[in-house]
């Protein structure tokens, strides 16, 4: 059964100019290795293809059982230039949690 990231992790979004940060934290420490293995920058980039136009970098924080994604060109030019209703991209944490994981690992 595919499993949504929402069942395994919690997330908060942040913004700096046109850059979006997505902090993904495992709900249970034992799930962290699976998150680290499956939630790759490439998968996040593909999942958010309609939103993120630039590079996605990932930082691993094993002590915190967390992954930090830094997405460039993700906020339609940033708070000022963006015509989006959610110009800060605050709701995008829940877009990431829609990602479906498969049964591997």
């Amino acid at each position: 059964m595919p499993q949504k990231l929402a069942e395994l992790a919690h997330c908060r979004a942040g913004d700096k100019g046109d850059t979006l940060t997505l902090s993904l934290c495992a709900l249970r420490a034992e799930d962290y290795p699976r998150l680290a293995a499956q939630v790759t920058p490439a998968r996040v980039r593909a999942h958010l293809a309609g939103i993120v136009k630039g590079e996605v970098r990932r930082y691993e924080l094993p002590e915190l059982h967390a992954l930090q994604f830094v997405c460039e060109q993700a906020l339609a030019g940033g708070v000022t230039a963006s015509l989006a209703l959610d110009a800060h991209g605050k709701t995008l944490s829940y877009a990431l949690l829609e990602l479906e994981l498969d049964d591997r690992d």
Partner: peptide, 13 residues
């Protein structure tokens, strides 16, 4: 605390 620690941090290193 974890959610806030990483909030808006574009380079944790």
């Amino acid at each position: 605390v974890k959610e806030q620690l990483l909030y808006e941090v574009t380079d944790p290193t």
